[in-house]
Computed example of a mutant assay.
Amino acid sequence: MHQLFNSLKGLIKPKLCITDNIVFRLHYRTTVVILLAFSIMVTAQQYFGDPISCITKRNIPANLLDSYCWIHSTFSIENSWNGKVGVDIPYPGVDNSKEMNAFRVYHTYYQWVCFFLFIQAIFFYLPHLMWKTIEGGLIRNLILGLDKPIVKSEDLLMNIDLLSDYLRRSFTMHKKLFFGYILSEILNLINVLVQMLMVDTFLGGQFFNYGWSVLQWNNWSWPLNYNPMIQLFPRLTKCEFFQYGPSAGIERFDTMCLLPVNILNEKLYIFMWFWFYSLTIVSIITVVYRLLMISFLSTQTLAIFLNCRTLKRNKITNILQNGNIGDWFLLYLLSKNIDPLNFHDLMLHLEMKIKNKILSNHIENEMDKYNLHRLD
């Protein structure tokens, strides 16, 4: 089994440069791996058996009947879900389809599950791809080896000076970086909501309440009883096959088909239901958190302080007061990647250079005023 998932190892390896948060990674790493793994699992016949197996009729080859019913869909009888198995019906959803009041519910989704899961995985990766394009490797290029706790003293001083000088010169120039990240987080939230709507449409409008129905169901004593999982993912369905008989007349064969693949599907989608709802909740919390970051300087200061506790909060506040939200975000990402002691020295150097720049600007302004006064 492990050979099936070797190709997914690259998605779960920890990255050396962190440019996002754990919620973001739940979208483009964890969720993508889950969906791709599910897509592989539903196509792994050698581990889970044939996806469909129908009861053959007369001289109809079994593989022909299986292929026909798989391609042309199977169906359940709606008014036979709650009948007594072995007395009224042979299985929940299976009954005589020749009766006039036998309303059919057709099942075609199982043909597309593996493709649908793969497409979902692509959509969950797109916001990360957009953010990766916007960020463009900036943080990785700015680290300058300061992520290591032990650096040669001359290299340490030189790199801190280079980085602090860049940060001072580029202050107020990083709004695009922050709002690009905000947009990516909002797209993550929109995407998971749209994905839930797509899955609900894909499953015939039964996904939104699927998890609640399963949680409320308490009669699991006999596996053949009607339950929400069997209704959405029936394990036994019906199929009609037509062929010419000996007298050239059309013969109709009403057969039953076992769907082992639905034993897997019902578990995959109940997990997906809980996962998508949980992901939606944490994504909403993340967006609210970002709004707080925009609104309050104290929350910005606290976010950086939690990554470098040796730095006094007033030092962080003094630096942030001279920049904008984009500058805070760049410093925040650097604080997540640079060693705390090195980041402490970097912030002290940056504060000193900002003060020197402010003092220099003040002196220039006073000189300009003095020169203008003399001209007058």
Rank of each mutant, 00 (worst) to 15 (best):
K132S: 13
I55E: 15
S283H: 02
F329G: 01
L350H: 07
M367A: 14
T56K: 15
K369W: 13
L189Y: 07
G180M: 06
Y226L: 14
W112R: 15
I230D: 02
N191D: 04
W275L: 00
N356T: 02
F233I: 04
R290M: 12
N318D: 13
G204V: 02
S184I: 03
M130K: 11
V33A: 12
I354E: 04
S53W: 05
V113K: 03
H72G: 01
N371Y: 15
I190K: 15
N96C: 05
A37F: 03
L224S: 10
C17V: 15
Q231F: 08
T280R: 09
D339N: 13
A37M: 03
Y370P: 09
N265P: 03
F24G: 00
L193C: 05
K267L: 02
L264I: 09
L259S: 00
S298K: 11
T43L: 04
I71H: 14
H373Y: 15
D66K: 02
W328Y: 06
I230A: 03
C17M: 13
G83V: 08
N218Q: 13
V199S: 04
S39P: 10
K336C: 06
D376R: 15
T133E: 14
K336A: 08
L183V: 05
N322M: 12
E99H: 14
R169I: 05
V199W: 01
R25F: 00
G323A: 06
L156F: 07
F103S: 11
D327S: 09
D200F: 02
I230F: 01
I139V: 12
G323C: 06
M256A: 14
M272D: 05
I182P: 00
L297V: 08
N337A: 07
G245L: 10
I22P: 00
L292M: 14
V194M: 06
R374C: 08
Y91S: 08
T108M: 15
L138T: 11
N307S: 12
L189R: 07
L11M: 11
L11P: 05
F329R: 02
H27T: 04
R168W: 05
G204W: 01
D20I: 07
G49Y: 03
T310P: 00
S360Q: 12
F343V: 04
G10H: 10
I263D: 08
